[in-house]
Nucleic acid binder design. Structure first.
Lengths: 240, 240
DNA sequence: CGGCTCCTTGACTTTCCTCAACATCAGTGG
DNA sequence: CCACTGATGTTGAGGAAAGTCAAGGAGCCG
């Protein structure tokens, strides 16, 4: 199987064969997780860097009222918590949404690799910056977009990210997220996301059924949701 | 005047006199900004690191519809864009909310300092992690808290951050933000934030008038808004 | 076939937005 | 000192968006 982590980082920096091999080596022994398993919980002491090689996960927090907010999706190729080891405790939890293959890289091994291969360090920093930028984009969505715009925006984001990592084609992707999960990411009720998705389907913009998303009218979705992919930083600055 | 930037970083790592002086030196020539001036705009090529020494600023994005979402507040001591120079363009803008003193540190000078003083590098990383954690906390607020809870949560956050940097005491702080600005940060209309603030005032939890916030009942606010200061990471992990 | 999860629908309620008017305040220049 | 101005804060009324509650349907698996 292609190593999605390597594939993603190659999109951020030109990596030599040796660098790719080094990355592949430290992620060569992933552990299998089942759906709905926590990788780490809020309050835990941060451990190794997690790398999702296959499957989906998400960062989330549960409020005292019991409601849940998802703050980020992790798809194949995504890593998390590059530097979070500096902090005493996790401020959120991470859970699988599907069964998943997850590699872990110890803090020490990560430091060694980044010291030995500056280009890898650079790619990891960029990945971190893009993640942060994505958080800001979500804030904009949650604060100022209608529920339908928000949903369309998220689907476009996930699709572009999936294409970038090579787990989707231009027309569509596998999207194994329940409506309840989407609702918790979009800050709405399960009932409402259901109605919103029906609208989007009826407008012939998307088809989403049984874990498969088809983007039928990307232009309309982009226009409607005010999607500007700048925040995903597909074009990068040249290293000086 | 005390250098708030140094004060803040000292909260993240034990800095020697020499390190403090180095930081003070590179921020010794701030430039004065008037209210509502952009420091940098979405689409611009990222430049130096900005350091707010006095006054308030915020990160924001404007949607095609013209509505604005604020994604972060920058108060005295806060810096921005440690590594963003790696990216080709800014994905958001930064604007002053008040008149402000802002120092700039060139990318090169920043790299030199971080190479020469690992503790400074560490403190800057931690600051970045806390900023990122704050973004996630805002996502939770916008997604899953009622407007009143959200407002209370934000006021508590700003107060704690202000106390940490030494620009506030336990009871209150200067908060020179208009209701319109608060509305754009909280994802609500100006009319609604006005009503929410009235509620909070009537419940004797806060007093907020003419740029001065008093926290009258922190316990009630904390409970009501589900505020858990963990995300601000006041307790840090020991360096190994 | 039962049992589970996930999706769908309808009815009703709450929250929040929009529009519009008016009040208050600080600063400016006559 | 006062009139004017622009920004900011306040109030009311009506409507749109989204939540809650409750019930039922569809697909999947042992």
């Amino acid at each position: 199987m292609v190593n999605r982590f390597v594939a993603k980082l190659r999109g951020f920096a030109e990596l030599s064969d040796e660098e790719c091999k080094a990355l592949a080596r430290v992620t060569s022994e992933p552990r299998a997780y089942r759906p709905r398993q926590d990788l780490i919980r809020e309050g835990d002491q941060p451990g190794p860097v997690f790398v999702i090689l296959d499957g989906w996960a998400f960062r989330y927090k549960v409020l005292p009222s019991g409601s849940r907010q998802i703050m980020a999706f992790l798809m194949p190729g995504d890593a998390c918590d590059l530097h979070i080891g500096m902090l005493a405790t996790m401020d959120h939890s991470i859970q699988t949404a599907t069964s998943a293959q997850v590699a872990t890289i110890s803090r020490q091994a990560m430091d060694e690799i980044m010291d030995a291969y500056p280009k890898i360090a650079r790619a990891m920093y960029i990945a971190q910056l893009v993640d942060e930028s994505t958080l800001r984009a979500w804030i904009v969505s949650l604060g100022r977009r209608s529920s339908a715009e928000r949903a369309a925006h998220l689907l476009l984001e996930l699709h572009i990210r999936a294409v970038r990592t090579g787990v989707a084609d231009q027309d569509g992707m596998e999207l194994p997220l329940s409506q309840a999960v989407l609702a918790d990411a979009l800050g709405m009720s399960p009932v409402h996301i259901n109605r919103v998705l029906q609208e989007l389907r009826q407008s012939q913009a998307i088809a989403l059924r049984r874990g498969v998303l088809r983007i039928q009218n990307a232009a309309a979705l982009t226009q409607f949701s005010g999607f500007d992919e700048g925040y995903l930083h597909r074009r990068l600055r040249k290293p000086e």
